[in-house]
Amino acid sequence: AEKTGIVNVSSSLNVREGASTSSKVIGSLSGNTKVTIVGEEGAFYKIEYKGSHGYVAKEYIKDIKDE
């Protein structure tokens, strides 16, 4: 049951290796980017990222929809 969301930041949002603010940053997404959410862990969504997965803070994702 995948969902999509939109990155809701003015600059960019860090994509992390794990569901923690201390996890390594593996990339970033600019505002209004559409993401595919494959799961959630605590305050983070697990998303599809560059052929693999990454984690982003839930508070910066809006317009969550079921695909």
Rank of each mutant, 00 (worst) to 15 (best):
V7P: 03
T36C: 07
V56W: 00
D63M: 14
G39Q: 04
E67S: 10
K46G: 02
E2V: 13
E67F: 04
S20P: 02
S12W: 10
G18F: 14
I6N: 04
F44V: 02
E2K: 07
T4V: 11
V25P: 04
G27W: 05
K50L: 14
A1I: 13
Y45C: 03
S28N: 10
I6Y: 09
I47W: 00
N14C: 08
I26G: 01
G5K: 04
S11Y: 10
K46T: 04
A19D: 02
G27E: 01
N14H: 13
E41N: 09
I37F: 01
V9K: 14
S28Q: 15
A43L: 14
A43N: 14
A43E: 13
S23Y: 05
E67W: 03
S20N: 12
Y45M: 02
G42Q: 06
N32Q: 11
G5D: 02
N14Q: 13
G39H: 04
G54Q: 01
V7H: 02
I64D: 07
I47R: 00
V56T: 02
R16D: 00
L13S: 03
A43P: 15
V15A: 01
S52M: 14
L13K: 02
S12N: 14
N8V: 15
V35T: 02
G42V: 03
G31N: 13
K62G: 12
I61Q: 01
E17C: 06
Y55W: 12
S52W: 09
G31D: 14
K3Y: 05
A57W: 10
Y55E: 00
E17T: 06
A43S: 12
V9C: 07
S30D: 11
S10K: 11
G51Y: 08
N8P: 04
T21I: 15
A43M: 14
T33H: 09
I47Q: 00
S30M: 15
S11T: 14
V25I: 11
T4P: 04
V56C: 03
K58M: 08
V38G: 02
H53K: 06
S52C: 06
A57N: 12
V35Y: 02
E67L: 09
E48M: 13
E67P: 10
E67G: 10
S22M: 13
A43I: 09
H53W: 10
L13R: 02
S23D: 06
A19C: 04
S22E: 14
H53I: 13
K50D: 10
A57M: 15
G31V: 09
L13G: 03
E48G: 05
G51N: 11
E48D: 14
K58D: 01
K62T: 13
T4L: 09
K24D: 06
I26V: 07
K46H: 05
Y49T: 01
S10W: 06
Y45P: 00
G39L: 04
T33R: 05
E2W: 06
Y60R: 05
S23G: 05
V35C: 04
K65L: 10
I26S: 02
L13N: 02
I61L: 08
V25D: 03
V56I: 10
L13A: 15
I37P: 00
Y49S: 01
K3C: 05
S10Y: 06
L29H: 01
E41A: 08
S10N: 11
I6C: 08
V38R: 05
A19V: 05
V9P: 08
Y49F: 13
S20I: 06
G54C: 03
V35L: 05
G54F: 03
K46D: 02
N32I: 05
A57S: 13
S22A: 12
A19M: 05
N14I: 15
V35N: 00
D66S: 14
V38C: 05
A19K: 03
S30R: 14
S12Y: 12
E40V: 08
E17V: 08
K24F: 06
E59P: 06
T36L: 09
K50C: 08
S11Q: 15
E59N: 07
Y60K: 06
I6F: 06
F44I: 01
K58P: 01
K58R: 08
G27L: 04
N8H: 13
K65V: 13
A19I: 06
T36G: 05
K65Y: 12
V7W: 01
T4C: 06
G39T: 04
K24G: 06
G54L: 02
S12Q: 11
T21S: 14
I61P: 01
S12K: 12
G54T: 01
G31K: 11
T36F: 15
I64P: 06
E2Y: 07
G27Q: 02
K58L: 03
K50H: 10
E41R: 07
T33S: 10
K34P: 08
V15S: 01
I37T: 01
G5R: 04
T33G: 04
T36E: 05
I64A: 08
D63H: 12
Y49W: 11
N8W: 05
N32F: 09
I61E: 01
I47D: 00
G42R: 05
L13Y: 03
G31T: 11
H53P: 05
S12D: 12
E67T: 12
K58S: 05
S52N: 14
S10E: 12
E41C: 07
T21L: 13
T36V: 12
I61Y: 02
G5Y: 03
E59S: 10
N14F: 11
Y55D: 00
D66M: 08
G18S: 12
E41W: 08
I47A: 00
A57R: 14
H53E: 07
N8Y: 06
N14P: 15
N8I: 11
V56Q: 00
E17K: 08
T36I: 14
K62L: 11
G18M: 11
I26W: 03
K50M: 15
R16A: 04
I26P: 00
V25Q: 04
E40T: 08
Y49P: 00
